[in-house]
Lab assay of single mutants.
Amino acid sequence: MTVLPKDIPGDSLKVTVGTANGKPGDTVTVPVTFADVAKMKNVGTCNFYLGYDASLLEVVSVDAGPIVKNAAVNFSSSASNGTISFLFLDNTITDELITADGVFANIKFKLKSVTAKTTTPVTFKDGGAFGDGTMSKIASVTKTNGSVTIDP
């Protein structure tokens, strides 16, 4: 049996954390987006972790974005102690894959008090994996961190 590389060099799934701005007490939304989904033969499963400074940001909610089908079954998240974990699994293993680019999740943060303008990162942590529509590992994932700026 011969195994051929399935990824064209330079191609990767792009996962990007967005940015937001606000004043202390505001609730802002930071999107997590996927790009080049079709090039990577869709997404059938993924789990990953984001870190944030809990002294500056309070997670209000984490909701599935419009590219997630049947989110009540296929999407899960949790947030505590400065870490947000995400889990997606197409429970049907074929019919509810992520097949389009767009917003995977929206994180709502309540901004805490600061004395001066502060930009705090929302960054990928170690761990996690992504699988394509056949549940094979997506070897190349380009992750881009985001941030939230609090301006009193």
Rank of each mutant, 00 (worst) to 15 (best):
Leu57Gly: 10
Val32Cys: 09
Thr142Ala: 08
Gly51Pro: 14
Ala105Trp: 02
Gly44Ser: 03
Asp101Ala: 06
Val148Gly: 09
Val59Asn: 09
Lys108Ile: 04
Asp151Arg: 15
Gly127Ala: 03
Asn42Gln: 12
Leu13His: 10
Ala20Glu: 09
Gly65Gln: 09
Thr142Pro: 05
Lys41Leu: 13
Val148Ser: 07
Phe88Leu: 05
Asp151Pro: 15
Pro121Cys: 04
Ser85Tyr: 05
Asn42Thr: 11
Leu57Ala: 08
Ser61Lys: 13
Asp151Cys: 15
Phe88His: 00
Gly10Leu: 13
Val122Met: 07
Phe130Gln: 01
Asp126Ser: 15
Lys117His: 03
Leu4Ala: 07
Ile84Cys: 14
Pro121Met: 04
Thr149Met: 15
Pro66Thr: 14
Ala72Gln: 14
Gly44Val: 12
Thr115Glu: 06
Ala54Glu: 14
Leu13Ile: 09
Ala100Gly: 09
Phe75Ala: 00
Pro31Ile: 09
Val60Pro: 06
Thr83Met: 06
Thr45Gln: 00
Ile67Cys: 12
Ser140Lys: 14
Gly44His: 02
Val62Glu: 13
Gly133Leu: 03
Ala79Lys: 15
Lys39Tyr: 09
Pro152Ser: 10
Phe109Gln: 03
Ile150Pro: 15
Asp90Leu: 00
Val59Gly: 06
Thr134Gly: 02
Leu4Asp: 13
Asn47Gly: 03
Thr16Tyr: 07
Glu58Gly: 09
Phe86Pro: 01
Phe86Leu: 05
Lys117Val: 04
Phe34His: 06
Phe86Asn: 05
Thr99Ala: 05
Leu57Tyr: 10
Asp7Lys: 11
Ser76Ile: 02
Pro24Thr: 11
Lys69Val: 14
Asp95Phe: 01
Ala35Pro: 06
Thr83Gln: 03
Phe88Cys: 06
Ala72Trp: 11
Gly82Asn: 15
Ile93Val: 05
Thr33Ser: 10
Gly133Tyr: 04
Thr83Ser: 14
Val141Ile: 05
Val32Lys: 03
Thr123Pro: 07
Asn74Thr: 02
Pro152Gly: 15
Asp90Cys: 00
Asn21Gln: 12
Leu13Gln: 09
Ala71Thr: 06
Lys23Cys: 14
Val37Phe: 09
Phe124Asp: 02
Thr142Glu: 04
Val103Met: 03
Ile107Tyr: 02
Thr118Asp: 06
Gly146Thr: 07
Ala129Phe: 00
Gly10Asn: 11
Lys137Trp: 00
Met1Ile: 11
Lys108Tyr: 05
Ala54Lys: 08
Ala116Cys: 06
Asp126Arg: 15
Val122Trp: 01
Asn106Ile: 04
Thr144Val: 05
Gly44Pro: 01
Val17Pro: 10
Phe34Lys: 10
Leu89Cys: 03
Gly22Asp: 08
Val59Ile: 14
Phe130Val: 02
Gly131Ser: 03
Thr19Leu: 12
Ala139Ser: 05
Ile107Arg: 01
Ala54Leu: 09
Lys137Asn: 02
Thr144Asn: 05
Thr83Pro: 07
Lys143Gln: 02
Glu58Tyr: 08
Ile107Pro: 01
Val122Ile: 06
Ile8Asn: 11
Asp101Asn: 09
Glu58Lys: 10
Leu50Met: 09
Gly65Asp: 10
Ala129Gly: 04
Met40His: 07
Ala100Asp: 07
Val3Asn: 11
Phe109Cys: 03
Asp132Ser: 07
Val114Cys: 06
Ile84Ala: 00
Thr144Trp: 01
Val30Met: 14
Val32Gly: 08
Ile98Pro: 01
Thr16Ala: 13
Asn74Ala: 03
Thr123Ile: 07
Ser55Ile: 13
Ala71Glu: 14
Thr115Ser: 07
Lys117Gly: 04
Lys137Thr: 02
Cys46Phe: 07
Ala35Val: 12
Ala54Thr: 12
Thr149Pro: 15
Thr142Cys: 03
Leu4Lys: 10
Asn81Thr: 15
Leu97Lys: 02
Val103Ile: 06
Ile67Ala: 14
Ala79Gln: 14
Lys112Trp: 01
Leu4Trp: 13
Val32Asn: 06
Val60Asn: 13
Met40Ile: 11
Phe75Trp: 05
Lys23Ile: 09
Leu4Gly: 10
Ala64Phe: 07
Leu87Ile: 06
Ser12Lys: 08
Ser85Gln: 00
Val15Asn: 08
Met1Arg: 14
Thr27Arg: 09
Ile150Leu: 14
Lys41Gln: 09
Gly131Arg: 00
Pro5Gln: 05
Thr16Leu: 11
Gly128Cys: 00
Phe130Lys: 00
Ala20Trp: 06
Asp63Lys: 10
Ile93His: 02
Met40Leu: 08
Thr94Met: 01
Thr45Pro: 01
Val17Ala: 11
Ile107Val: 07
Leu97Cys: 03
Ala105Leu: 04
Ile138Ala: 04
Gly65Thr: 10
Lys23Ala: 12
Thr144Tyr: 07
Val114Gln: 09
Ala100Ser: 09
Ile8Asp: 10
Val59Pro: 09
Ile93Lys: 00
Asp132Asn: 10
Ile98Asp: 02
Thr92Asn: 02
Ala64Lys: 06
Phe75Asn: 01
Leu56Tyr: 09
Gly146Asp: 06
Leu87Phe: 03
Ser147Trp: 09
Thr45Gly: 02
Phe34Leu: 10
Met1Lys: 14
Thr94Cys: 03
Val28Asn: 07
Phe104Tyr: 14
Asn21Ser: 12
Asp126Tyr: 15
Ala79His: 15
Lys110Phe: 02
Thr123Asn: 08
Pro24His: 13
Val28Asp: 07
Val37Gly: 10
Gly10Glu: 13
Lys23Val: 11
Ser136Trp: 15
Val60Ser: 11
Pro66Met: 14
Gly22Arg: 08
Leu57Cys: 07
Asn81Leu: 15
Phe130Arg: 02
Phe75Ser: 04
Thr94Asn: 01
Gly133Ile: 01
Thr16Phe: 13
Ser61Pro: 07
Ile138His: 12
Asn81Gln: 15
Val114Tyr: 04
Thr119Gln: 10
Gly102Arg: 03
Ala129Met: 00
Pro152Ala: 15
Val68Gly: 07
Ser12Met: 08
Asp90Tyr: 06
Gly127Met: 01
Thr45Leu: 09
Thr118Arg: 10
Lys143Arg: 06
Asp101Leu: 03
Asp36Leu: 12
Asp63Ala: 12
Tyr52Gly: 09
Thr27Leu: 10
Asp101Glu: 06
Thr16Ile: 14
Asn70Asp: 08
Gly22Pro: 09
Ile98Gly: 01
Val28Pro: 10
Thr142Ser: 05
Val37Gln: 14
Ser85His: 02
Lys137His: 01
Ile98Ala: 04
Gly44Lys: 00
Gly51Val: 09
Lys69Glu: 10
Val43Cys: 10
Leu50Glu: 08
Ile150Arg: 14
Ile138Pro: 00
Asp63Gln: 10
Pro9Ile: 07
Leu97Pro: 15
Pro24Ile: 13
Val114Thr: 07
Ala139Tyr: 15
Leu89Asn: 00
Asn145Ser: 07
Ser140Thr: 10
Thr83His: 14
Glu58Asp: 11
Ile67Lys: 09
Gly128Ala: 02
Pro24Arg: 10
Gly44Ala: 03
Leu56Gln: 10
Gly51Leu: 07
Val122Ala: 05
Leu111Asp: 00
Ala54Ile: 13
Asn21Phe: 08
Asp53Ile: 14
Gly18Ser: 10
